[in-house]
Computed example of a mutant assay.
Amino acid sequence: MFYWLYEQLAAGGHVPILNVLKYITFRTGLAIFTAQLVVVLMGSRFIRWMQAKQGKGQPIRAEGIERHVVEKAGTPTMGGVMILAGLGVGTLLWADLSNVYIWAVLLVTMGYGLLGFLDDYAKVTKQTTAGISGRVRLALEALIAVAAVTMLILWGGRSPEAPALSTSVAFPVFKALLVDLGWFYLAFAAFIIVGGANAVNFTDGLDGLATVPVMIAAAAFGLIAYLVGNYVFAQYLQLHFVPGVGEVAVFCGAMIGAGLGFLWYNAPPAKIFMGDTGALALGGALGAVAVATKHEIVLGVIGGLFVLETLSVMIQVASFKLTGKRVFRMAPIHHHFEKLGWSESTVVIRFWIIAVMLAMLGLATLKLR
């Protein structure tokens, strides 16, 4: 919204001070601050309201960590509503709303947030850990992802040196390797977005465990969006230039701010859980940003922690079905380490450290060309 003011007033020389709004870095900083402020201000009131509405709070798996059943019982969920509020306000106030990339990532974020909300609502009202049907949810996630990717293919910026970039997959390290999948790219990109959403959802099992790695990944992709969307930087680093995608950095800033605000209440011991409302939305957002910036494969590195959590579940399920034995004491893998005797805070902080290391490794691919 404020970018529109810049276009109407500052660009014509009427209010020169508004010229600062043309800088993506300036608006990204304000998006961080705004999103954080929104979440912090609504936090206490929202938590009290959810406690009154939810009563027993989010159901805890009976077969899970024993002390969680006691310590976390009664903690309200759906804290993702707070995150979405901050993220939405921060983005809508400071981003260029004529940019198709902004609307595509918002479509995924808010659409997945709604799906997560319905899932959380079913769990709370029925007091069960099973929400809406998994197949139905996956189908709706895929539908939303396909709609967003279609927007990017049809109306996204075209790179002068790579006209087919919108349907191509770029590979890190290999600067000239670009594979055009045509409309098959829809399925590939949708898989990235849906996979990202569910990977973050698997990770969200301990206080603050998913929140900080999401912020770390958002910071990394905010930088990637800014560099890829800037012709000079993209040429210098030998990246594929994606016109207009730099605006996604503002969205990533809002994601960081919303995460910081939520962490104020989600830090151990958590006063509220983000639930599927937040986890699906944030994971889908990361996937959508990776697709928009043409760094889908790099998401597997920067978001490697989420990949590890997902693989642990897949390995556990496959092993048990095939052999009747479990590879891990409990999946996802963060519970495995708790079963080994690690305290919750130890698991969380060490996983944060891993997330930072993987983000740095992912960013290193920008120069390894």
Rank of each mutant, 00 (worst) to 15 (best):
T77P: 13
T77G: 10
T77V: 10
T77C: 07
M78T: 01
M78S: 01
G80N: 03
V81M: 14
M82S: 13
I83W: 08
I83R: 08
L84Y: 09
G86S: 09
L87I: 14
V89K: 07
G90M: 05
T91Y: 01
T91D: 02
T91I: 09
L93P: 08
A95P: 10
D96R: 13
L97H: 11
S98L: 12
S98V: 01
S98P: 07
N99E: 04
V100L: 14
Y101H: 05
I102P: 09
W103G: 06
W103Q: 07
A104W: 07
V105F: 01
V108M: 11
V108D: 00
V108E: 00
T109W: 11
T109L: 15
G111R: 01
G111M: 04
Y112D: 02
Y112N: 08
G113H: 13
G113K: 10
L114Q: 00
L115A: 04
L115V: 02
G116S: 04
F117A: 08
D119M: 00
D120V: 06
D120F: 05
Y121N: 13
Y121H: 14
A122W: 12
A122T: 15
K123L: 06
V124G: 02
V124R: 02
K126W: 03
A130R: 14
G131F: 05
G131C: 05
G131I: 03
R135F: 07
V136T: 14
R137V: 03
R137L: 02
R137W: 02
L138K: 00
A142N: 08
L143G: 00
I144Q: 01
A145M: 07
A145E: 06
A145G: 11
A147C: 15
A147M: 15
A147V: 15
A147L: 15
A147S: 13
A148R: 12
A148K: 11
V149A: 00
T150E: 05
T150L: 09
M151I: 15
I153C: 11
I153K: 12
I153Q: 12
L154R: 15
W155F: 14
R158T: 14
R158P: 10
